[in-house]
Write a protein that binds this DNA or RNA. Structure first.
Lengths: 283, 283
DNA sequence: CCCGCACGATACCCGTGGGGTATCGGCGTG
DNA sequence: CACGCCGATACCCCACGGGTATCGTGCGGG
């Protein structure tokens, strides 16, 4: 017997309407119908009478509703009791500054609900360390962007974003459907801070060192373009700000948002966070 | 939280050895390791200390062992209570006489364990009705063989068996790797009973009516060949008996063992039996 | 002392199942 | 009688659970 199916059953039993129950469960009606039928086959009893007038509980269904509620509560208690044992803990999360996306919020929300006793400490980093302190052991898990040296790390790609040139909206090149690096060769580029990671440096400098103004955070890019008249690269995972334009760069390989932790990581919290993050970005 | 994982956990906790627990659970060790790790991530706690000396429970694991046992028992009680409500029931199963295979036994064994309160009535039929009384509504579900008229029925193929000529072992044709219907044209064929189903009749008579001795059951085929010197067709899903030989017929399309029930069937028992059968034959 | 062995972890592959979208069917209603 | 509501069905696709092969490590024996 599957607790998930029991949860579905309770929803339908309370709504007495497959469509509404499906909405409550954030799934569609057909899978819900199948799930209930599967539960019925598993138990060997019909749980609902589907009359045209509406859905009603059979006697067996009425009994199961009670039992299911108590069983689900029992499971919840079990989870809480075991989780309580592990005592308070903290998880230090490294963000690359632009990690403040809706998906990131969803992950942290889900994680807090799953592990309420774990305190999440967030450490936002400037652009000098693509691993956000993970390589140095200063954070447990990092939500960041590639590419960087992955030796000793467990890294999973979350998204694949094309890379665009960041221009003023009134730039003559802003109207083009796409550009190449050569198109921007004469421009002054804003410059990312020095880093020890060769892959990162080479990728984001597009192969050659730049000499423009230094940007230490993602927001500074915007200022550099708007006020200093420079250009630069940015992953296309957000809207350009007011007065700015993003034009895809044909000859840049796409950039990946990734989640990373130490390869030898054993803490279940951190593994859990890792898994939840991967799941959240898939949905 | 997944009850399946809890069951795995209890097994490991009792054996304190992943390999042995895996044997007990009829799965292999690697999936079990992963399952436990997943449970640990889900709960946010390590449940076992894996020291080289052996596996021991952590404090959290000790608590969970208690809780898990009680939760699993609770689930079992729930299943029983709901199943008890539906009262005694019978499921009438039609068999085509040769339905007595190991796979058939497995299905009925699993079904009995799943639904102990359901009495299975078996109705073996002679060869006059390929649906074993299903079309006539005299059985709930049939384990039989195609082809037959499927209108109004839900039919699922279980196996695909080549069809062979059934000969005496000392027949001159018995040594051939395969035969055609034409090779047997001069022989006297044993004859199946008359049936109303045109598809069935045409298939098993290989297109033309026969005039040999009548066989009403599968076992009679053996006698007809051994003692009457006739030949006939049989699906290659069993060993030929002592003194007999089976030679594949090149120009007969294969025969399918199938499970069937009424298309409009609503009884969860019967749906469950149907599903279990399909699953059992896949494994 | 180092090789072999025991045992849990990891890597990788494949099939099933659970989720999705599109559509049906059957019954009430205007 | 046409339409609409609602659960069921058909079909697709990817994630996950389970499989085999292999690794890494710590311990014991020759």
């Amino acid at each position: 017997m599957d607790l998930r199916l029991l949860g579905y059953f309770v929803a339908v039993a309370e709504e007495l309407h497959f469509g509404r129950a499906a909405v409550r469960l954030h799934i569609r009606q057909p899978p819900l119908s199948r799930a209930i039928r599967k539960l019925e086959a598993d138990l060997g009893t019909t749980l609902f009478d589907r009359t045209p007038a509406g859905v009603t509980l059979t006697p067996a269904g009425t009994v199961l509703l009670d039992e299911a509620r108590s069983l689900l509560a029992h499971a919840e208690r079990t989870r809480d009791r075991v989780a309580a044992l592990s005592g308070p803990a903290t998880l230090t999360l490294g963000l690359l500054g632009d990690g403040d996306t809706p998906a990131t919020h969803r992950v942290m929300e889900t994680f807090r609900r799953r592990h309420p006793r774990v305190e999440i400490r967030i450490r936002e980093t400037d652009l000098t360390d693509p691993t956000c302190g993970l390589a140095a052991g200063r954070v447990d898990v990092a939500l960041t962007r590639g590419p960087f040296d992955e030796t000793g790390l467990r890294v999973t790609r979350l998204t694949t974003d094309p890379v665009a040139a960041l221009l003023r909206a009134d730039d003559p090149l802003a109207g083009h459907p796409h550009l190449t690096l050569a198109d921007l060769d004469e421009r002054q580029w804003f410059r990312f801070p020095e880093t020890t990671d060769a892959q990162w440096r080479s990728y984001w400098n597009a192969g050659k060192p730049r000499s423009g103004p230094l940007v230490r955070a993602v927001t500074e890019c915007r200022q550099a373009v708007l006020w200093n008249g420079t250009v630069g690269m940015t992953p296309m995972d957000h809207r350009p700000g007011e007065g700015l334009a993003m034009v895809p760069l044909r000859d840049m390989p796409p950039s990946h948002r990734v989640v990373a932790c130490a390869k030898a990581e054993t803490s279940p919290y951190i593994r859990s966070f890792f898994a939840l993050t991967v799941a959240a970005f898939r949905a």
